[in-house]
Design a protein around this nucleic acid. Sequence first.
DNA 1: TTCCACGTGAGACACAGTATCATGTAGGAC
DNA 2: GTCCTACATGATACTGTGTCTCACGTGGAA
Lengths: 146, 146
Amino acid sequence: MTRAATTATHAGGHLVAALDRAGHRLTGPRRSVADLVAARDGHFTAADLVEDARRQGIGRATVFRSIDLFTSLGLVERVDLPGGEHAYVACETAHHHHAICTSCGRSFDVDDAGLSEVLGTIGHRSGFRVTAHRLEIFGLCAACQR
Amino acid sequence: MTRAATTATHAGGHLVAALDRAGHRLTGPRRSVADLVAARDGHFTAADLVEDARRQGIGRATVFRSIDLFTSLGLVERVDLPGGEHAYVACETAHHHHAICTSCGRSFDVDDAGLSEVLGTIGHRSGFRVTAHRLEIFGLCAACQR
DNA sequence: TTCCACGTGAGACACAGTATCATGTAGGAC
DNA sequence: GTCCTACATGATACTGTGTCTCACGTGGAA
Ligand SMILES: [Zn+2]
Ligand SMILES: [Zn+2]
Ligand SMILES: [Zn+2]
Ligand SMILES: [Zn+2]
């Protein structure tokens, strides 16, 4: 379990690199959105990002297009908070889940920790063939428990 | 694992009973929406329900208000499909999760099957105190595998 | 039967995300 | 370096989903 985002300027370098690897153009706006995403601490809404981007002269549509792009590359994931609101989190690319702190909003990557066995049990018991799943965990991070 | 919905007319009886128990008024529109929800096979969108209800002269706002009500009573739950779309499913009131068939759309209630241990492991390892979680499972039901 | 707190429908509203289209530019070909 | 074009952008209009307001209606207790 590691912190999902860092906070340096131009921290979006690895996002930009991933765009490049996938054969997408490395444009100014995309670099900027990548930095904005990487600079975010914890989950953020589309509106947050649109507002940040607007101050740099980047349009609404481009922000959504960039989010889609990063999402398709597995670098950003859309999560649904307990209240039903949507948010996005920056994350690593492998299959994993998020533990989201309800106090500070930070998200942490979590590995399966036995979940796949649980899913196997469910499938075996019921004849349901599991092909995909989503797990979201909410609670308090170690720092916020103090 | 049991089927979540049945298909008879006025099948919304147990929904109506739950409203009564919780001290809400048993109005005509609410009874109708309860029936519409109970009659649904598998997940449905708000738009589906609004359309059904409109034919009976029931307004949009009332449908959303009824969904909220049923949701607060644990009789309907909002789920997020893999593609990102929203839907609702009728379900029993205890804590559980949904296995959703990507072919026929039916949803099945699933118990923890060891999930709480997995969550305990995650918390123990990382110092994160888990207070809530959401698990959605997608795949093919036994019938649709044939 | 009376009464009023709660529920309703109509329609305006707020917000997230998408589509369209004319303009701009990254980056490969040369 | 210079073209060139496919891809990206921003402005703007649009759709869909859910919320709010408010005048009117009604369930259900007294
Ligand atoms: Zn925290
Ligand atoms: Zn998993
Ligand atoms: Zn099925
Ligand atoms: Zn659970």
